[in-house]
Design a protein around this nucleic acid. Structure first.
Lengths: 348, 348
DNA sequence: GTTTAGCACTCTTACTTCCCGAGTGCTAAA
DNA sequence: TTTAGCACTCGGGAAGTAAGAGTGCTAAAC
């Protein structure tokens, strides 16, 4: 498919304008738009050609043209110029990311919030474990004679904890022994390696009449099971209601409900490589609910064990340029922070 | 204000029906409704009286009546019977709560989700610290020569952690010393007690040429600052779009946007005592955005240091009976779980 | 051959008008 | 005090109308 320069320019103008206004774009508007020296009639002829190529369509006779999904695809692939984020924007993202990265568990949800704020579209964030998790290290913190906190550091660098309250008193040395047996026998192994025999043998080894091992192992299994599941977060759904394409509450509701379902989010397309953004337009989406919407996703990696996905959902008329730039930057920044250390590019 | 039995019964019928259908209730419908032996004309006369008392109103002449906010208030205060949750329902809540209480930090957000699911209205959850937090205990977990996790257990029983990666190598004994000085000097004190002098003296005491103390204390301050702030979660906003009163996207958007603002959520009314639910109807709300909506909130306490709030937002035509029962039960269950231990009433 | 101007045509959107029916308030009788 | 009957009111949906934007086509101009 070969497009003349003029056709490209017209297509780009139509897409840009339609992204902004959500109104079909007429030939006159295109002709008047930046620096065309030809009349609207000429534009009309070209637009007919673009329509026959399947890049534009008319919602009805005698309305302006709007891009088809294929038109958006061509725009995204060939016409869209990668937008440079301004210094202020990168600064802001850096600052926001850095201040959010206090607690490992929360980063992902915070990254989602940030994305939604910056793009003005709903954003979702997922974590996905590539490998099965194991506990790297247990720690026990005594609160009082009845109470302690069991802390587990997992192989994906996250930390889980549980407050344990017992009806009977426990001595410090019992907890110490519990800690050592947990660290000796239950670290570095996956959920399926925790057998009843292992538990019994561990209980014997410290003469565990109180059943502390059983409690701790129960918690461990809970954690490992939960960590196999994916975490997901959705924010900024109210942005959808801003858009004219969702002024019909039914549509908005369907899509928000769809996005609220963790299981569905997991099925969404993911980019192959970290850092870059992948764009899925309208009917390219497999899910029926998203046939009228577009999804932009970026991936980041944390070590080898874990990866995360941040995505933005909007109408096909999404501002692809802006969204994909910002998303890619955020994903990259996250990757740096999580696996690198404290500094982001641009920091001194 | 004295209401005859018949008037009470009529008011209750109107409110119940309007809650279900969202349509103005006519005299005929009331007359036919359960067991009235009088004609619609009699009902009409009574309804005029109720209207003059300010309990009912007509959206326009020749439509049925709908309750005024005052009408709802009377309904809530005098006519509503506390609904007993069914055994299945309490079982389900118990099960859901128990399985969620793995990780202290997440409980509150999970409780919000649960509430929203059970009531079919949007729910929000807040934590509020009554007292300033302190770190109870530090723990350091070594990952490799460049990396360790700093874990802090706070006085509110939550656990915070931070992955620290350095460009230079650190020895195990350096970390051990860091741990002891942190536990010796930085536990049990509030944010404002962390003075530069304290930091310098701590650094000297372990000959900290690597600046580890500075990093750890920086993290501590971050945590204490953040824990003073409130956490808030909002879920189930899509339920709003089900309701006819929010079929206008503008209204829905305004209220969702309002609820997404943490600062505003904090201003919402809170119940005085834990366990019971407080109901705020329409114009009783101070916020302009909520003048057409009602809020049901319940509070739970965790020890003396912390308390949390769970709230449900819906139209004035909210199913107060159902919502307040469930909310009270959930709040109660949470309180038990968080401060008591493992068992819920009804468990064996 | 390409571009332009002009014109008739189409289709949506917004606005007005009109009718229907549900539900009321009043009055008079039971 | 309750009931039946009746005229009246008003919102909502259907139908009809006018305006406007944008098109496709044709014929002339470059």
């Amino acid at each position: 498919m070969e497009l003349s320069d003029r056709k490209k320019r017209i297509l780009r103008t139509v897409v840009d304008r339609y992204i902004q206004t959500a109104e079909p774009v007429g030939s006159k508007a295109v002709a008047e738009s930046c620096g065309f020296q030809v009349s609207s009639a000429t534009i009309r002829n070209e637009m007919v050609a673009l329509e026959q190529m399947g890049l534009l369509e008319q919602p009805h006779t005698s309305a302006g043209r709007i891009p088809t999904p294929l038109g958006y695809r061509v725009y995204v692939n060939e016409l869209m110029e990668q937008q440079r984020l301004s210094l202020e924007e990168t600064e802001m993202i850096n600052r926001a990311l850095r201040s959010k990265v206090q607690q490992l568990d929360r980063i992902i949800s915070e990254a989602g919030k940030l994305t939604s704020q910056l793009t003005n579209y709903p954003a979702y964030a997922l974590t996905a474990k590539v490998k099965e998790c194991t506990v790297e290290r247990f720690a026990i913190v005594t609160i009082d004679a009845h109470t302690f906190i069991l802390v587990a550091m997992l192989s994906d660098d996250s930390v889980k904890n549980k407050l344990v309250r017992l009806h009977y008193e426990i001595r410090a040395d019992q907890l110490t022994r519990l800690g050592s047996v947990l660290n000796a026998r239950f670290t570095g192994i996956g959920e399926r390696d925790i057998t009843p025999e292992l538990i019994v043998s561990a209980e014997r080894s410290i003469d565990d009449s109180l059943g502390l091992v059983a409690i701790a192992v129960g918690f461990t299994i809970e954690i490992l099971t939960a960590s196999r599941a994916h975490d997901s977060f959705l924010t900024g759904t109210s942005h959808l209601l801003d858009l004219p394409e969702f002024k019909d509450t039914d549509k908005a509701q369907k899509i928000i409900r769809y996005l609220s379902d963790d299981a569905e989010l997991l099925k969404l397309p993911a980019p192959d490589a970290a850092g870059s953004a992948r764009i899925t337009i309208g009917p390219e989406n497999l899910a029926e609910e998203l046939k009228d919407s577009s999804v932009v996703v970026a991936r980041y990696n944390v070590g080898d064990d874990m990866q995360g996905i941040i995505g933005v959902v909007g109408p096909t008329r999404m501002d692809y340029t802006q969204v994909s730039s910002k998303l890619a930057y955020i994903a990259q920044g996250l990757g740096w922070l999580l696996s690198g250390g404290f500094t982001l590019p641009g920091d001194e």
